[in-house]
């Protein structure tokens, strides 16, 4: 576990290069592995940007084709995952622009999602309870909890959604997430926190 993101570590440059060499050599198994590692996350990020799952799937397919066409030009300025998501986000934003959709990754104004939870002195009005019903066994036993989490992530604004997927699910380094989305680190942390608050609220509703 990565203490910062709770994620499996992004492959280092060494293993990236092994994957890159295999892709250049036309190794289908290596491509399939890379595809399964990132495709679903790419569709989730692109859906947030384009506003349409169908368009996102097209954009993601285009991005994969571009990745394979240009893989020989990959340089170690980013991780392979960072490079792939940069291609994806650029294509998704271009497509959104063509369709007249304006996408901003700004953190926006103040978050008020928990405004009613505190009294005037900033103390809890209703004390949160431990989620004693959520155990690893229950999570493994049923997809329902994970479906709720996925639905909550899909309901996030594009920036929060992208940060949650890239940082919270794919385990990209903070600097890479900022570079891909063109945001600063402070904004990224605010968006990650707000995204987690929204997902936490969805789980809490299920628990009550």
């Amino acid at each position: 576990m990565d203490p910062r993101g709770g994620c499996t570590r992004v492959p280092g440059i060494g293993s990236d290069w092994e994957q890159v060499r295999a892709l250049i050599a036309g190794d289908r198994a290596a491509f399939a592995q890379l595809f399964r590692q990132h495709n679903a996350a790419m569709v989730r990020v692109a859906t947030g940007i384009t506003g349409s799952r169908a368009v996102a799937e097209e954009v993601t397919q285009d991005a994969w084709v571009a990745v394979l066409k240009h893989i020989a030009g990959f340089e170690e300025r980013s991780s392979l995952a960072g490079w792939i998501f940069t291609i994806l986000v650029n294509r998704a934003r271009s497509r959104a622009r063509v369709e007249g959709r304006s996408v901003s990754f700004d953190a926006g104004g103040e978050d008020n999602s928990l405004a009613a939870a505190f009294d005037g002195r900033g103390h809890w009005k209703d004390t949160p309870a431990l989620w004693e019903e959520i155990t690893p066994d229950r999570i493994v036993a049923g997809r329902r909890m994970l479906d709720v989490v996925t639905a909550a992530i899909e309901a996030l604004p594009p920036g929060q959604r992208a940060v949650m997927v890239l940082r919270g699910q794919q385990g990209l380094e903070a600097e890479e997430v900022c570079a891909i989305l063109g945001i600063n680190e402070g904004n990224m942390r605010v968006m990650l926190h707000r995204a987690r608050l929204a997902v936490r609220a969805a789980i809490d509703r299920l628990e009550r």
């Binding site: 399939a32 495709n39 799937e57 431990l130 989490v149 987690r196």
Partner: peptide, 24 residues
Amino acid sequence: HQMRVTRSLTLAAGQGSPDDDAAL
């Protein structure tokens, strides 16, 4: 504690997708 659980569930929810094979 809830935020830690949220972080773990977020990670778990991001693992793979049954649609991957058709898309590949």
